[in-house]
């Protein structure tokens, strides 16, 4: 059954999501991929301040192609989540509640997802043109120098995803 939920995501919604659920997300998410993760991590471990408060938020692992005039964004599909695994448990501990990407997560990440009650969604890889239609606005909020890897605040509407790892640690890919 399809579900419709808001982002940032609340605890009740997280609890009722199960691996395999088809979900449409509406609200605000933040993009960050390899370089932004590295920089946020290095800032945080040194005790510095992050450009956004992660608690309760959802990160979309995505680096868009440039937007044509009059459009909010270019092609906007997910990148491989596993490359962020090194940093993910740390951010989950800081309060991150959701991630959108594609592909497998490490056992450590899955354990952390269960421990901190979070959720990992997959969007369809290679469907960036289609997914861009669910992105209503995009604004760079930090790390502009990273180009496509900058942190962007996205307003999304009925953005289609599938729950891959739920808050109990179930993994759809392992079924």
């Amino acid at each position: 059954m399809d579900k419709y939920i808001g982002v940032p995501i609340c605890e009740e919604d997280i609890k009722q999501l199960r691996a395999g659920d088809y979900v449409y997300l509406t609200g605000t998410v933040y993009t960050a991929r390899d370089a932004a993760h590295k920089r946020m991590y290095e800032t945080a471990v040194k005790g510095g301040e992050l450009p956004l408060d992660l608690s309760g938020q959802v990160i979309y692992y995505m680096g868009p192609s440039p937007a044509r005039e009059g459009r909010p964004i270019g092609s906007a599909g997910p990148t491989t989540a596993g490359r962020m695994d090194k940093y993910t448990p740390f951010f989950l501990k800081m309060g991150l509640k959701g991630m959108i990407g594609k592909g497998k997560r490490s056992d450590k990440v899955k354990k952390a997802i269960a421990e901190y009650g979070a959720v990992y969604f997959a969007a369809v890889g290679g469907a960036g043109a289609l997914l861009s239609r669910s992105v209503k606005s995009s604004r760079v909020i930090a790390y502009d120098d990273l180009g496509t890897e900058a942190i962007r605040e996205l307003r999304i509407e009925k953005f289609p995803v599938v729950v891959v790892v739920d808050s109990q640690g179930n993994d759809l890919y392992e079924r």
Binding site: G63, R71, G74, V124, A127, A129
Partner: peptide, 27 residues
């Protein structure tokens, strides 16, 4: 679910060509 995804990929291709937006953001 597989069928649904493949239909999305077909739609994605169509949108890419019509709107001139890359098929995938990783160009």
């Amino acid at each position: 679910l597989g069928k649904k995804i493949l239909c999305q990929l077909k739609e994605n291709l169509q949108i890419a060509g019509e709107d001139m937006i890359p098929i995938c953001q990783d160009t």
